[in-house]
Each structure stands twice: as structure tokens, then as C-alpha cells.
């Protein structure tokens, strides 16, 4: 029997646009048309002002490393130690992710380093956004 893989998201009506976006190679965020705030995770109302006038837009995929933890306990689909990162997107919101193409050590994981999104296809419906050190 194959080793169990990492937990994969189950899209809901509120989050469908996000996962359709990653499958199409786009990082989609939402913006409140009333107060102007960009936000994540997806929801059909603005958590800051309560407005239901919200829209979806394509983000740049640029981010910086806000912080991380290097996990040493076994988790299905991961080979410890691995870093769980929180990235600060150029558009404002923070997002949890993994950092790829980078050693999973405190020396390599420099806070505020420039990152860019990479899309990792998991199956026909799910593609995960992860981040790597920005090139150039």
C-alpha cells in the first residue's frame, strides 16, 4: 500500500475560485469593494467591514517570508524536518505555505527574503501554491 500523502484541500463554494485559480496557474485573492482591503482566506464577505461587495483578482505571486517553524514530528506526506512558512503577499494578506528549492534550515530561511509562487499539481483538481526564493 502506498504511503499516505499530505492532506489535500476539499474546496467549498466559498473557496472554489481559489483552487480553480491555482489549477490555472493563478494566485487569486479577494478585495473588498467597500473598504478596499485585500484579504485571504476566501469568504463571501469582508471580515474587516462586513460588506458583501467583494471581488476576486489575480495576485502577483510575489511575497516575503514573514516567519516559519521547522517541524520535527512525523506528518503524512512530509519528511521531517520540514518548514511550515507564513508568507506575506505583496498585496497584503498573509498565507501559510511551504518553501521549496531552499534548505529547510534557519540559515537558509531568512526572514523577509523575497519569494515567488510556484504551483505544485497534486491531482486533477488540486494544485497547491508554494513559494521559492525569488529569482533575479
Amino acid at each position: 500500500m502506498a504511503e499516505p500523502g499530505r492532506a489535500l484541500p476539499v474546496p467549498t463554494p466559498e473557496t472554489k475560485h481559489f483552487w480553480e485559480g491555482t489549477a490555472a496557474g493563478e494566485l487569486r485573492l479577494q478585495r473588498c469593494d467597500s473598504c478596499g482591503k485585500n484579504y485571504f482566506p476566501p469568504k463571501p464577505f469582508c471580515a474587516t467591514c462586513g460588506s458583501r461587495k467583494v471581488s476576486v483578482f489575480k495576485a502577483s505571486g510575489k511575497a516575503v517570508l514573514w516567519s516559519y517553524v521547522i517541524h520535527h514530528r512525523p506528518v503524512p506526506g512530509f519528511k521531517p524536518p520540514y518548514a511550515i512558512a507564513v508568507v506575506q503577499l505583496a498585496e497584503g494578506p498573509r498565507m501559510m505555505s511551504n518553501i521549496v528549492e531552499c534548505e529547510q534550515t534557519p540559515e537558509a530561511l531568512q526572514l523577509d527574503m523575497d519569494l515567488e509562487v510556484v504551483f505544485e499539481k497534486q491531482n486533477d483538481t488540486i494544485t497547491l501554491p508554494v513559494f521559492r526564493p525569488a529569482k533575479g
Partner: peptide, 26 residues
């Protein structure tokens, strides 16, 4: 939660995040 990350965990569990201790460590 196993193979499926539902609800709010769909944006955390796929990255190997499981509990408040990790959040505090971040």
C-alpha cells in the same frame, strides 16, 4: 485530519500544519 483537509484547515493542513504549538512557534 488524514487525506482530506476540509473547512479552515484547507489552507493549513496541506502544508503540514497541525496545532496551536506550531502557530506559537511561528
Amino acid at each position: 485530519p488524514g487525506a482530506q483537509a476540509a473547512g479552515a484547515t484547507q489552507f493549513t493542513a496541506p502544508y503540514g500544519f497541525g496545532g496551536p504549538g506550531q502557530g506559537m512557534a511561528v
